[in-house]
């Protein structure tokens, strides 16, 4: 009789460890989600009970993780081809696609319902929309259909600070929209810089990345144009109730730095980039990460500094939205 086999070594694939399930949630992306959502929550007027704030951040992060798991479920075929993603749990054979789907759907439901209960319905609805946007609009539809995938898909990553803001205030304001726009405009140059030095990856996976469909010259131009468009958004954010001298100084300094980096990328051709192994593209990619972390850090610092009455009075002069 061979029906019952207890020989573990015959297992089809290794059983997953706990950390493989954690990897499904894209923890590195989660850090950016947590950081920007926390900034949105801290800079919003009013406040939450610390436990409610903690719960809001945890469930926003969990929603982001659920999107990551569902993205890995849908994109397993692409991930297997690309060098950067080949070690993800599904292509590595540690987690099955069904498991990833089940974990994604479960965590998405829990995060939306719990964020709603912990804060308010609008915050829960925005989180649900973010997950839908990332999984359905970006992963299922745009990623394989258009080279503008990064531009529109980037909106999903731009929602966390807005959700943090809404969790506190219960409504969407110009400040929340500008924080959204800041990440929205930042995403394309950030990812296209990555695509320039990860070129074979997207090409082999047949993902219509701008570098593949329109060429690398056009990508360099796109990076420059989006970085130019990012500057007024970064400055405009500083002219609202959440801005102030610290943020404005950081925004101007870093935006000019980013702009110079984008200019350096635009000036170069492929021969120059190949010669130094894409040193400029890699430098600008790293800089773009610092850019976002420092700007949201500066917004949070402004909120903390405004507890000093003298500073609050001075910072209020930057608030043009209030003046008009």
């Amino acid at each position: 009789m061979t029906d019952i086999r207890a020989d573990f070594t015959q297992a089809r694939q290794p059983e997953a460890e706990f950390r493989d399930y954690v990897a499904l949630l894209k923890p590195r992306v989660m850090t950016l989600v947590v950081f920007t959502a926390l900034s949105g929550l801290l800079v919003a007027p009013g406040g939450l009970h610390p436990v409610e704030g903690l719960a809001a951040i945890i469930f926003i992060a969990l929603g982001g993780g659920a999107s990551g798991a569902l993205n890995m479920w849908w994109d397993a075929d692409i991930d297997a081809v690309m060098k950067r993603t080949a070690k993800r749990p599904i292509p590595a054979g540690k987690v099955t696609e069904g498991e990833a789907f089940a974990i994604g759907i479960t965590l998405a439901s829990i995060s939306v319902i719990m964020l709603w209960l912990a804060t308010n319905a609008l915050a829960g609805a925005l989180l649900a929309f973010t997950i839908f946007f990332y999984v359905v609009i970006y992963s299922m539809w745009l990623k394989r259909a258009t080279p503008q995938n990064i531009v529109i898909g980037g909106a999903a990553g731009a929602f966390p600070p807005m959700i943090g803001w809404v969790a506190v205030t219960g409504s969407i304001s110009v400040e929340a929209c500008l924080m959204f726009l800041l990440i929205f405009m930042w995403t394309p140059p950030h990812f296209w810089a990555l695509a320039l030095f990860m070129k074979s990856d997207y090409h082999e996976a047949k993902v219509p990345m701008l570098t593949v469909t329109h060429g690398r010259r056009a990508t360099r131009t796109h990076i420059l144009v989006y970085t130019i468009a990012l500057l007024p958004v970064a400055v405009a954010t500083g002219l609202t109730s959440i801005g102030g001298p610290v943020y404005m100084a950081a925004a101007l300094w870093l935006s000019l730095g980013f702009l110079m980096g984008a200019w350096d990328i635009w000036k170069r051709d492929e021969a120059q980039a190949e010669a130094d192994n894409y040193a400029t593209e890699k430098r600008v990619f790293r800089f773009s990460l610092y850019y976002l972390f420092i700007l949201f850090g500066a917004l949070t610092a402004e909120a903390a500094l405004r507890n000093l009455p003298a500073y609050a009075e001075f910072a209020a002069r930057f608030n043009l939205v209030e003046m008009f």
Partner: peptide, 29 residues
């Protein structure tokens, strides 16, 4: 395999305990 399973079980137990603590804390808040 037993080690991996035990790691998963402990991980899940910790996640569930953290969730219970959070819901309890939220209720109090």
């Amino acid at each position: 395999l037993h080690k991996r399973r035990s790691g998963r079980n402990v991980g899940l137990a910790l996640v569930l305990l953290a969730f219970i603590a959070l819901v309890f804390g939220l209720t109090i808040a």
